[in-house]
Design a binder for these strands. Sequence first.
DNA 1: TTTGTATTTAACCAAACGGTTAAACCTATT
DNA 2: AATAGGTTTAACCGTTTGGTTAAATACAAA
Lengths: 211, 211
Amino acid sequence: MKEERDITTEQRILKAARKVFIEYGFNGARMQLIADEAGINKALLHYYFRSKEQLFDVVFTDLLARFQIAFFTILASDKPLIEKIRLMVEEDIELLMKHPEMPLFIISEVARNPEKTARRANAAKISSLFKEFSRQVKEGIAEGEIREVDPIDLLMNILSLNRFPFIGKPMIQSVIGLSDDRFQKLMKSRKRSVAELIIGDLKNRTTTGGK
Amino acid sequence: MKEERDITTEQRILKAARKVFIEYGFNGARMQLIADEAGINKALLHYYFRSKEQLFDVVFTDLLARFQIAFFTILASDKPLIEKIRLMVEEDIELLMKHPEMPLFIISEVARNPEKTARRANAAKISSLFKEFSRQVKEGIAEGEIREVDPIDLLMNILSLNRFPFIGKPMIQSVIGLSDDRFQKLMKSRKRSVAELIIGDLKNRTTTGGK
DNA sequence: TTTGTATTTAACCAAACGGTTAAACCTATT
DNA sequence: AATAGGTTTAACCGTTTGGTTAAATACAAA
């Protein structure tokens, strides 16, 4: 008579925890605030989740799967390289526009405790997904479809252009002044322009200097 | 008989505080740890800096100037556009390679307290430096030197490609496995490749799809 | 040597924190 | 209506935290 009904309370707690952890980070978050946000008492919180760290783990593992593994799954899907890159940009930016605080939250918490992340995110799986992509890139190079490029370098360019704007948003807004509305429009237009920047670089780069 | 000699102690404190704040963030940092790191007692810490927040302010304002204002100063220097962009990439990455933890630290702390940042970093000045750059970009477009582009978009691309790799380093390392040595080499090669990516996009982009 | 001032310390404090306990409260089954 | 088990709460606990205090120490100027 428990398993079925308490979906409500447990999910209210998880939703509240997600909100508070994302806003304040693990160190800044307070169990009392999570309890308030969920409309319950602090002791009940510990009844459902034994400790702050355990609650955080549940919340974080879930978010990691939704935002990291989703990206790497597209990265290893069986689409043609160019189409795939366009998808990796457009779908990722689309998702991040709905959750602009996620990239900074995830990266901060991984940096706070890198050892745990490998276990939590099933790093072995992601690593193998990346190797699959890596193979596809080398294939594209061999066939002359794209220029010579290090797959890690390519991945970094895509992740950088997709995610930095959301990570640096508070910084950029407070320093050069940029309304939320303007930011939103900019991100929308970036879905196309970032894809073209990356693909253009792969298909027809002309050396602009040196060796 | 004070002003002259205590440079030693005060600077030892600042150095220790910098290290601890950067490693743990404001919320994770402990005054006791800063005191230990500086080789002094906690009370002496409060003798020199009345509160944790005040000490943090001194440390953070200084770092903000060194890493943000430096970048925006190059951005508004009186060099030709293309040469300037190359400099903005190469010098920024060069600096970040010596201080890889800085971008994530700065962005996290700005996000934690955006209101304060505007005052701290002299946002008005940076904003005017950016307007100067913005004017130069429009000039380059009018003269047909580069393609049509939103200056904010251009700035975001440069900042993204420069800084995200350092921000996402722990994430990427724990997820796809990437040694510090390999990372270092990658960043070194990016000084050239990122500049070419940006400049190539500005000088000869060919539309790869749609309208 | 004495005096005044800068420097350093150990001991202490109140508040906030994560976490526990034991009892009360529902509510469905018998 | 009695029972049993899931659910909720107020009160409490030990620790850690940022911060204070008052006294000791070093040392230059008188």
